[in-house]
Design a protein around this nucleic acid. Structure first.
Length: 583
RNA sequence: GCGGGCAUAGCUCAACUGGAUAGAGCGCCAGACUACGAAUCUGGAGGUUUGGGGUUCGACUCCCUAUGCCCGCACCA
């Protein structure tokens, strides 16, 4: 029989069926199938251990009983027991070949993966910079991780909505508009709008500090804006338009395109309903003039309030975020919402989701899965967080530019015979991919130590290593005179040499890597897999020559090359990276 | 003060959420191109997983505790 895209799920089903025959399922038996250390097999089932423990049985004997019921599986697997009761499954070469023949393109991999979240809608809120400000290195993580998560969710079958929740509403606009009206440099606005807005804000800020009369004027500008004054609203729109255009230049380099840009201002007219519903639900109450929510059952939030309306009656980010959750649930019918921000907002989102769950239950609103995807701070080499107002922050624009310049020097060194235009294009891909991959290859929870050399380095577990593997495979196909889009590989036989088998076994586990990365919303699991796959390929490449006289051997190896190419490219695209023909 | 997070090889990071002998890269040492791209590959050295206790067939992972660093905590987001 043909193995499905996810072989582990196939084993899981078989083990459940076997356990059911033994009457174990009702008593809580779980197979616990996972990818095994290659020395032990391809997959292992650990469930017998935990179950035997709870039933006070001999785990090894129990595992043996389960295995005895697995009859037809031994066509595809070598099955054996090990240790205290591990069940090991090793794919036979013929089964490996069958899987490789079935999953021969990005489209077929996608089709195999898409059953998990078919019919679901997921909304991902990421990047979310403030308007009128440069994006700096701290904005990189949310954008890069968020985009990878979008692609992973889409790969698992979901309809994905990308929403850029920009910070386009706040007290800073009073000072900015004050300065805009008096000191705007039209030429600077046209060429470098964000620099000009930053200059104007600083000017407005320092003027207000120096002169109380200016502060009053700035506050009045803000009041006028919030009241809908036409002139101020026009300036505000201009600021947003120019900011978004500047952001999009960066998003274009990162391969990001949002479906919606519903910033904070979008929810201005939606907060009244929040106050009303939360009060009706008995969740919100007045405290020190403000409207707040306490959670008596919670160790911290019993006393630390969730402040949803300021004492002056104005909304804040809590009210705005509550309105955002409701809008996404009602308007988009989202099954899941993912918000990608740094971990310092963890308290806020815990309070937000705690409140939303109680509120939705009280009001019978359909509740989506709510996820706050956090990531560590970007720190300097001293381990301290880089802050926006520190003089030394690195602009994202400059970072990407320098990455590409460094990549260009390297490409020119390695491939001096390529035309300059092509070297530029390669450097663009390699430079940006290096920056993205540096972020995606490590667990997002940990702090990110910012260092040029580490980020742009093209050695070890880096984008360049993976792109190089892709380029080498494409080179093989050029040499063999075959089109990797439509290779003539009919009649390919099962893997034979140690390196062929190792590579084939790794390829089959692509589905487990994407599943793990998606279910945990941690793209680094996919990065790690791709790095290991590229390593297996490199070892295979060094040991087994592909383009040989013997046609059987050649076809067999070309099949492996081709599937490696497809899986590597599919995986890199899922991470949001572009790939190359040669480099 | 209250609460959260982190601590793994010299350095940067993994370890599939309680599974088998804790793995990679960089750096170091020794090898491999008149072979499809050496941005590569093959070996080697390197560990009391911050210290101390506990839970169990099994702990980097869970609990307690000590230390160190980071972060949040009433009207910024």
């Amino acid at each position: 029989m043909n193995l499905p895209f996810n072989v582990a799920s196939h084993l899981d089903a078989a083990l459940r069926a076997s356990a059911a025959l033994l009457g174990l399922t009702d008593r809580g038996f779980q197979p616990e199938v996972r990818v095994a250390d290659p020395a032990n097999g391809d997959f292992q089932a650990n469930g017998a251990l935990a179950f035997a423990k709870s039933e006070k049985q001999n785990p090894r004997a129990l595992a043996q009983q389960i295995v005895d019921q697995l009859g037809q599986l031994d066509a595809d697997f070598d099955i054996n027991l090990a240790g205290p009761g591990f069940i090991n499954f090793r794919l036979k070469p013929g089964a490996l070949l069958g899987w490789l023949q079935a999953y021969d393109s990005e489209a077929h991999l996608q089709a195999g993966a898409a059953s998990v979240r078919l019919g679901q809608t997921w909304l991902v809120d990421y990047s979310s910079p403030n308007t009128a400000k440069q994006m700096h290195v701290g904005h990189l993580r949310s954008a890069v991780i968020g985009e990878a998560i979008c692609r992973l969710l889409a790969f698992s079958g979901a309809r994905v909505i990308r929403d850029n929740h920009i910070g386009d509403w706040g007290t800073q606009f009073g000072k900015l508009i004050w300065a805009y009206k008096r000191h705007l440099d039209q030429a600077a606005l046209a060429s470098e709008p964000l620099e000009e807005f930053e200059r104007l804000y600083k000017l407005g800020n320092s003027s207000a500090e120096a002169d109380p009369a200016v502060l009053t004027e700035a506050q009045q500008e803000l009041v006028k804006l919030q009241a809908g004054d036409a002139a101020n609203l026009a300036i505000w729109h201009e600021i947003n338009r120019a900011s978004l255009a500047a952001f999009q230049e960066i998003y274009d380099q990162l391969g990001i395109r949002f479906d919606f840009t519903h910033g904070e201002s979008f929810y201005n007219d939606k907060v009244e309903r929040i106050y009303r519903e939360l009060s009706e639900a008995g969740l919100a109450r007045e405290s020190e003039g403000a409207l707040v929510v306490f959670h008596p059952e919670h160790p911290r939030f019993a006393k630390q309030p969730f402040l949803i309306r300021k004492k002056d009656g104005a909304a804040n980010y809590a009210s705005s975020d509550l309105a955002t959750v409701l809008y996404r649930a009602e308007h988009f019918h989202a099954d899941g919402i993912v918000v990608v921000t740094d971990y310092r907002q963890a308290d806020h989102f815990e309070q937000l989701y705690l409140t939303a769950r109680k509120w939705f239950a009280a009001k019978n609103h359909p509740l989506p899965e709510l996820h706050h995807v956090t990531f560590g701070a970007v720190t300097g080499e001293d381990g301290k967080a880089l802050k926006t107002r520190d003089g030394g922050t690195i602009r994202l624009k400059d970072l990407l530019h320098e990455a590409q310049e460094r990549a260009f020097q390297l490409v020119s060194e390695r491939s001096p015979d390529f035309p300059e235009a092509e070297r530029r294009e390669i450097a663009g891909v390699v430079g940006v991919a290096s920056v993205q991959y540096a972020d995606l290859s490590q667990n997002r929870s940990s702090d990110y130590v910012f260092a040029w050399d580490k980020m742009i380095s093209l050695e070890g577990n880096t984008a360049a290593y993976l792109l190089y593997a892709v380029a080498r495979i494409r080179s093989i196909f050029r040499k063999a005179g075959l089109d990797p889009a439509q290779p003539a590989l009919a009649g390919a036989t099962a893997p034979e040499t140690a390196q062929e088998v190792a590579l084939a076994r790794k390829l089959v586990k692509f589905s487990d890597a994407t599943l793990l990365a998606t279910s945990t919303l941690r793209p680094h699991f996919l990065s790690l897999y791709l790095y290991e796959l590229a390593g297996e390929f490199s070892a295979f490449y060094a040991a087994d020559k592909v383009i040989v006289e013997d046609e059987v051997v050649r076809t067999r190896r070309l099949l492996l090359c081709h599937r490696t190419l497809v899986v590597l490219e599919t995986g890199l695209h899922l991470l949001g990276l572009r790939t190359l023909e040669r480099m």
